[in-house]
Nucleic acid binder design. Structure first.
Lengths: 144, 144
DNA sequence: GTAGATGCAAAACCTTTGCATTTTG
DNA sequence: CAAAATGCAAAGGTTTTGCATCTAC
């Protein structure tokens, strides 16, 4: 979970203006567990009567994404969604039952990517790994 | 590269009707190197005066995707695209310079995924790995 | 004071659907 | 012939943009 303060802090440190709408969006992102869509946040913003417009939500999400505070993921159903990230690069395991996302530490993926690069003589610049499944909690919930 | 015949053959074997529009779309997919968007194919179809509508392109692409003949990938810029696949599950290394995609054989990824499952007590049901970089050809082209 | 942000509404896109018509097996 | 597939046009969504106004620095 990323706190709103962390988001705002990074915003500040990277030389962007600390505006009220951005603080609010940061709060909404931090308040969300699991993944959410841009439309979800627009709804949150309306419900909170924050007066923040659709465009600002999109623009802020884009900014957060550039700063690596949020990652855009694509669900198996094709929906666009976002998840809050820690600053370091990592991946998410997304529970298809409750929508929560777990951070995956890099257990050997970089070695796999190196292998790919060597085998194909391909210079890897970036990658995206999305893992979908059922988290421990949801597994036990179903089992009962 | 997947040939149109392979696509059509799989279509047939899986009990779907072999219609002219599907043959045409298969041809367009096969003719494409690298990744392409639905809009690209719609354009190809129009240019070829094939009389095939947008809806059919989307429906056919969806069908091909279900059959694993094509995979939907999401480019770093957020664009939705497709690439032709071999029948077996694998991943693509997409060249950001020429757009071509290379198949990645599973060199150790399944072990990584197992590790994720065990470590987090997460039951992995599906995943998506997208690797972006520069292919050998483009590397040498730039070097010259 | 000025560059950067915002809101609004409209525009631009992309994808899906309903339905009458055509085609395949 | 019946079931499946198609084309068209319209609907449904999502994301982006232009522009006047406002605000952080």
């Amino acid at each position: 979970m990323t706190s709103a303060d962390e988001l705002v802090g990074t915003l500040d440190r990277s030389g962007h203006r600390l505006t009220t709408p951005r603080r609010v969006v940061a709060g909404l992102v931090a308040a969300r567990a699991g993944h959410f869509t841009a439309a979800d946040l627009v709804g949150d913003a309306r419900r909170a009567r924050s007066g923040i417009g659709r465009a600002t939500v999109f623009r802020t999400l884009e900014l957060f994404s550039e700063l690596g505070l949020v990652e855009r993921v694509d669900l198996p159903n094709g929906e666009h969604a976002y998840v809050a990230c820690e600053a370091v690069h990592h991946h998410h395991a997304i529970c298809t039952s409750c929508g929560r996302s777990l951070d995956i530490s890099d257990i050997g993926l970089s070695r796999v990517l190196d292998g790919i690069g060597n085998q194909l003589d391909f210079h890897v610049t970036s990658h995206r790994l999305e893992v979908f499944g059922v988290c421990a909690e949801c597994q036990s919930r179903v089992t009962h």
